[in-house]
């Protein structure tokens, strides 16, 4: 379907109002966009995390599709069971509907505790899309560091203090780890790039086999920014090349967005309270430098991998709002 906002606005919202995610939550916008992008009926499994506790608090649910939560580290394993049931019942002629399957997890449930279950489900080739809404820490339980937390960020388990500049190690490159599973489709995106995000959801759901989206979903509580700035921070992450928008389709890496001018990473760091200490202590300039060097190095490596630069799948344009970047 055409990705024009006018057309999309006619669709039923499958992610309902009345959920209890924080005001200005980047993950909430992400969930709305994912659900608006779906066309066939979907079954969703959600890992324990913000999106879980705030959207399914008994006796209320924000979900209008079939939806299951079983635990934290097993969103992918749970959906693989649902998908196996579908394959079995379909083969027996007990179900004829076309149904798609989506597993959702935060970065805690995906980078860390759920990595094994994700890897297993990808390797087994289930027909499902895994979405990681990555807000770069365990936000639901109060901002503890995760494998996705960037170097230098102050979290409640990697706090900056007189003897520490916050998290001492770099985030892991989960998207590349997933790519090493040689699945047919995976991508990185953000909800600020709504057309990119929704196009990627549609593309992933159209593919047979496991697919994966790593979506940077700002958390203003954990990032210590104003709640109105969630989309702005996601956009800055792409414009500084801290969070490049790219996809890997059948092993081919494609860049989906090249900033007109690659901004220094400090533009993304400075508005965020979790990096404040890096700028108040001159000693920590070296941490900022390391972050910039790493972003530059990774960006250069990505450009090498991306032989083709392509636009996301759906490129119909809408009457020109300045922020409708890709």
């Amino acid at each position: 379907m055409a990705l024009s906002l006018k057309e999309l606005s006619k669709k039923e919202e499958l992610f309902s109002s009345g959920h209890r995610l924080c005001a200005g939550c980047g993950a909430a916008t992400t969930m709305r966009q994912i659900m608006l992008a779906t066309e066939d009926p979907v079954v969703i499994s959600t890992a324990t995390g913000c999106v879980y506790v705030a959207t399914a608090t008994y006796p209320y649910t924000a979900w209008k599709c079939n939806w299951i939560h079983s635990a934290f580290e097993n969103s992918a394993a749970t959906i693989s069971g649902v998908e196996a049931a579908y394959q079995s019942l379909k083969r027996q002629g007990k179900i004829d509907k076309k149904i798609k399957f989506i597993a959702i997890g935060g970065d805690g449930g995906t980078y860390d505790i759920g990595l094994q279950s994700l890897s297993g489900a990808l390797e087994r080739g289930h027909n499902f899309l895994y979405v990681c809404y990555n807000n770069e820490a365990y936000m639901n339980t109060g901002i503890q560091r995760s494998g996705a937390t960037p170097l230098g960020a102050s979290t409640t388990t990697s706090p900056a203090g007189s003897a520490s500049y916050g998290k001492k190690v770099f985030r892991k490159d989960l998207t590349a780890i997933v790519a090493a599973h040689n699945i047919p489709y995976l991508a990185q995106t953000t909800p600020a790039h709504w057309r990119d995000l929704m196009g990627k959801v549609q593309k992933a759901l159209a593919v047979e086999g496991p697919t994966f989206l790593n979506i940077l979903a700002p958390c203003h509580r954990g990032w210590r920014v104003e709640m109105k700035d969630s989309m702005k921070l996601a956009r800055l992450a792409a414009d500084t090349c801290y969070w490049p928008l790219y996809e890997v389709e059948n092993g081919q890496w494609k860049l989906n967005y090249t900033p007109k001018e690659k901004k220094p990473v400090t533009e993304w760091l400075k508005p965020q309270g979790r990096f404040k200490h890096l700028f108040s202590n001159p000693e920590y300039q070296k941490v900022v430098d390391r972050l910039q060097e790493t972003v530059d190095k990774e960006w250069a490596a990505l450009l090498k991998k991306c032989v083709v630069e392509s636009k996301p799948p759906e490129t119909e344009t809408k009457t020109a709002p300045a922020r409708d970047v890709c």
Partner: peptide, 27 residues
Amino acid sequence: CLICWIYCPEGCIKVKDGKITEIDLDY
């Protein structure tokens, strides 16, 4: 332009025939 509609985390900007009708203050 519906940019507010697509970014709203609550889905509380109401649109009919491509035009914003109201912001649902219940949510």
